[in-house]
């Protein structure tokens, strides 16, 4: 499957066909999701109207984690099978991934203001997300940190693997730290059980974000492929 997709020309054909579909799905899901989130779902009896922030916050958090795992999978493909497309995929996903992590932190902070009375609380989940955001920053800095762009690919992919191995450890240590320093908060970012009326907009918004993520990734990948072609041509020219 991967070999089939790894051919850049074929990738371009498939992605060109896929792009409008994904954009359309994403747009429809966003419209529907926002409608459900703001008009067709009840306010929480405890959190009131602020619960609607969750419909952005939670899917973004899911996407931030999913994206990092996808990047690590791409890194394995790149390091083992040396497919340049896998490296390009990881690079393309990094920015939207960091964006999701940032949106999660931002909306978490918006939610925390009325709920906790402060913009930032060292909640275990928020702290883990902050560290995930740092890991994204580290990857992006390393991938683009070399004079020749391709030189950064292998170290950056290696860093992704180290990061994905460390992620559960970091998550565990932060959770552990949190229980050590403060009792578990009464108001968790998502309740233990969730009403179906709230679950529906959550899933629709997640679909919307997934579609948007795929579209952005495809666009960024095509751009990176073009850039790489140009730099390869320049390198070849400088020899002759």
């Amino acid at each position: 499957m991967f070999d089939y997709l790894a051919n850049p020309t074929r990738f371009r054909k498939i992605s060109a066909a896929l792009l409008p579909v994904v954009v359309l799905v994403s747009l429809i899901a966003f419209t529907l999701g926002l409608y459900l989130a703001f008009f067709a779902s009840p306010a929480d009896y405890q959190q009131g109207e602020t619960v609607r922030i969750m419909y952005i916050h939670v899917p973004a958090a899911w996407m931030a984690m999913l994206t990092y795992i996808l990047m690590a999978v791409a890194a394995v493909f790149y390091l083992v099978w040396r497919h340049p497309l896998a490296d390009i995929g990881a690079r393309a996903m990094a920015l939207p991934g960091a964006g999701f992590a940032f949106i999660t932190l931002l909306t978490g902070s918006f939610w925390g203001r009325p709920m906790w009375g402060t913009w930032w609380v060292w909640d275990a989940r928020l702290t883990s997300m902050l560290i995930l955001f740092f890991l994204y920053l580290g990857y992006m800095a390393l991938a683009d940190g070399f004079e020749r762009a391709e030189r950064g690919s292998k170290p950056a992919c290696l860093l992704l693997l180290v990061g994905v191995i460390n992620l559960p450890i970091i998550k565990f240590s932060v959770d552990w730290w949190n229980t050590l320093h403060q009792g578990s908060s009464v108001l968790r970012l998502d309740g233990p059980s969730i009403d179906p009326a709230m679950l529906k907009p959550l899933l629709v918004m997640a679909l919307a974000m997934l579609g948007w993520f795929i579209a952005i990734t495809i666009l960024r990948m095509s751009r990176l492929i073009m850039q790489r072609r140009i730099s390869n041509l320049e390198a070849r020219e400088s020899w002759s």
Binding site: R148, E150, R228, S231, N232, A235, R236, W239
Partner: peptide, 8 residues
């Protein structure tokens, strides 16, 4: 041997 996208 390839170097920077071309065969050296």
């Amino acid at each position: 041997i390839s170097r920077e996208g071309g065969l050296l």
